[in-house]
C-alpha cells in the first residue's frame, strides 16, 4: 500500500520540485534581461534607431541596432562615427544577430521614404530660385530669342571675386533655363506635329 501511493513527504517534495521547475522555466524572461542589460542598456531605444536611419537612409537597421548595442546605446557615438566617414561595415553584425527591429519603423519608414526624395531633391527651378526667370514662351517665340541673345554676351573671368561668383551663378541659371526652354520647345514641336 505504502509502495503504491505517495506519502505526504514525497508529495510535498514533488510539489516543491515542480514549483521550482516551473519557476525556472518561466522566470528567465525577467532576470535574464536584467543580466544582459548590465552593459548600459541592452535595450536599444527605437527612437534612436529611427533617428539614425533617417539621417543615413542607406544603412541597414540591423547594423544600426548592432552598433548602438556595442557602444552602449549612445546615439551620439554612432552618429559621430558615421559622420566621420567610417561606415559600420567593419563592425558587421553576425548573421545570428536578429534584433527585434522596432515595429514602428515599418510604417514610418514607408511614409518617410516616399516624400523624402522629393524633399531632398527639389527640382532645379526651385533649387536655384528661378521661378521668376522662367519666360513664358508659348505665344511669344521671340521672347526666348531675346533672353538667349542677351545672355550670349557672357563675360569670362573676372578679377573680382564677387563678380566671379555672380558669373558662375548666372551661368548655372542660364544652363538650367536653357535646358528648360529646349524641352518646352520640343514639347511644342511634338504637339504641333500631333
Amino acid at each position: 500500500m505504502a509502495e503504491q501511493t505517495l506519502n505526504i513527504p514525497q508529495l510535498i517534495a514533488v510539489v516543491l520540485v515542480g514549483f521550482l521547475a516551473i519557476r525556472w522555466f518561466l522566470s528567465p524572461a525577467s532576470p535574464n534581461q536584467n543580466a544582459s542589460s548590465r552593459n548600459a542598456g541592452r535595450q536599444v531605444n527605437p527612437a534612436h534607431v529611427e533617428q539614425i536611419a533617417q539621417m543615413f537612409p542607406q544603412l541597414d537597421r540591423r547594423a544600426i541596432v548592432w552598433d548602438l548595442l556595442r557602444n552602449g546605446g549612445s546615439l551620439q557615438a554612432t552618429t559621430e562615427r558615421l559622420l566621420s566617414g567610417r561606415s559600420l561595415d567593419t563592425r558587421q553584425p553576425p548573421t545570428s544577430f536578429q534584433p527585434p527591429i522596432p515595429l514602428s519603423t515599418a510604417p514610418t519608414a514607408s511614409t518617410s521614404t516616399t516624400p523624402k526624395p522629393s524633399a531632398a531633391h527639389p527640382d532645379l527651378i526651385t533649387r536655384y530660385n528661378l521661378s521668376s526667370k522662367i519666360t513664358t514662351p508659348p505665344s511669344t517665340p521671340g521672347a526666348s530669342d531675346v533672353t538667349s541673345s542677351s545672355v550670349e554676351s557672357k563675360p569670362g573671368w573676372s578679377a573680382n571675386r564677387n563678380e566671379r561668383a555672380e558669373i558662375l551663378k548666372r551661368r548655372r541659371e542660364e544652363m538650367v533655363l536653357a535646358a528648360r526652354r529646349k524641352m518646352e520647345e520640343k514639347d511644342r514641336k511634338a504637339q504641333s506635329a500631333a
Binding site: W157, I167, L168, R171, R172, M175
Partner: peptide, 27 residues
Amino acid sequence: LTQDPPEGITAGPVTEDDLFVWEALIE
C-alpha cells in the same frame, strides 16, 4: 573651367571661402 568651359559643363566652388567644395552641373 570658367574661361574655357567644356560643352555642357558648369562647375565651380560653392563659395570661394572654401575652394574644396564645388558644385557642378552636367548636361
